[in-house]
């Protein structure tokens, strides 16, 4: 039986813009199990990155948490992330929970050698033995297939994008974290490098046995790496479940749309389809279902009543937030001509 590692309960976050508020996360609840690998999937602006930084309470200054908690369970102690003082949070960050935000290419201080990034990180967490730190760094760099000596004495700009991503991964593992969160770990990289990074992640996960949360817009990446998938839309989790269940029998029309619009390179047809319309404006609170505007299954119920995330009947641990959820959603979608063809 899986034990819980992180519990997100009823989390709402808003951003205060110059003229209006943006409700980035709206009552999101999600359990993350120890040792699992979970993908947070959604289009840009769906709140997945906001959720990512919430795990370590590193939200931008213009944001506000309006409801909910995140609890992190470590050594059978429950830590309430939002109630932890900054000094404690600083200790927790990177030593227990590693969060690698988007933009690994610029993740390193351009005037510091890679060596000093390792040392700086270790020192900040009270580990002062330089030889030990560098030995661990060398091991980790070798582990991600890099020439450790050369990399350690390099400046960031002397490394390629793929190399920097690897260095960041090994820097992430320096303090043996329990949880690793990756936000779009492969975006700025070319396809070949992406492949290598994915393979590497699998290996590392096996060896270091951390809980992996990764944030992506790319369902195929989720299929490859995740045990479970949480699909997010307009600041809400709309469907959560085992990766096989999500792909085989999506209940939510949005999930089904995402799956069918993922290009299948191996299939006989190479056409790419997409969900018509665009994500809703997040500066207002929805009365009904946020997906209403774009949904092929919508009915009058959806206008005024917001669907709650509830377990489906057929399968344990598969949750969906849709008034018209059913195991036949994918069939419906495929039959209709709802999706617009790009090519």
């Amino acid at each position: 039986m899986a034990t819980k590692h992180i519990i997100v309960d009823d989390l709402s976050v808003e951003y205060l813009g110059a003229t209006k508020k943006i409700y980035a996360l709206q009552h999101v609840s999600l359990d993350i199990n120890r040792g699992e690998s979970i993908a947070l999937v959604g289009e840009s602006g769906c709140g997945k990155s906001t959720l990512g930084v919430s795990f370590i309470n590193l939200l931008p200054l213009n944001s506000r948490i309006t409801s909910g908690t995140i609890k992190f369970i470590s050594n059978s102690k429950e830590i309430d992330i939002f109630k932890t003082p900054t000094s404690e949070l600083q200790k927790l960050r990177w030593s227990k929970i590693v969060m690698m935000a988007q933009g690994a290419l610029n993740a390193f201080n351009p005037v510091m050698r890679i060596r000093d990034h390792f040392i700086d990180t270790a020192y900040s967490h009270g580990w002062k033995n330089k030889t030990e730190i560098l030995n661990k760094a060398r091991y980790l760099l070798k582990r991600v297939h890099l020439d450790s000596e050369r990399v350690l004495s390099s400046f960031p700009h002397e490394l390629s994008g793929g190399m920097r991503q690897r260095v960041l991964l090994s820097l992430g593992l320096l303090l043996n974290p329990e949880v690793v969160i990756l936000d779009e770990p492969t975006t700025a990289l070319d396809i070949l490098t992406q492949r290598n990074i994915i393979e590497l992640l699998k290996e590392l996960k096996k060896e270091f046995n951390f809980t992996l949360i990764f944030i992506t817009h790319d369902l195929s990446l989720a299929a490859e790496l995740a045990d479970r998938v949480a699909v997010m839309y307009a600041g809400k989790a709309v469907e959560v479940g085992d990766v096989y269940d999500i792909f085989a029998t999506p209940y939510h029309p949005y999930t089904a749309g995402l799956i069918t619009s993922t290009p299948k390179l191996r299939g006989e047809s190479t056409e790419v389809t997409s969900i018509p319309g665009s994500p809703p404006n997040l500066s207002e609170i929805f009365k009904g279902c946020p997906f209403y505007e774009r949904c092929p299954l919508r009915s009058n119920v959806c206008i005024n009543s917001q669907p709650k995330l509830t377990a489906v009947e057929e399968k344990d641990g598969h949750l969906v937030a849709c008034h018209h959820a059913s195991k036949n959603t994918l069939e419906h979608i495929k039959q209709g001509d709802w999706l617009s063809t790009i090519q």
Binding site: A101, G103, T121
Partner: peptide, 11 residues
């Protein structure tokens, strides 16, 4: 980005 990442690193 590197300032954001440094915060995440607990510096």
């Amino acid at each position: 980005d590197y300032v954001e990442v440094a915060k995440a690193r607990g510096i």
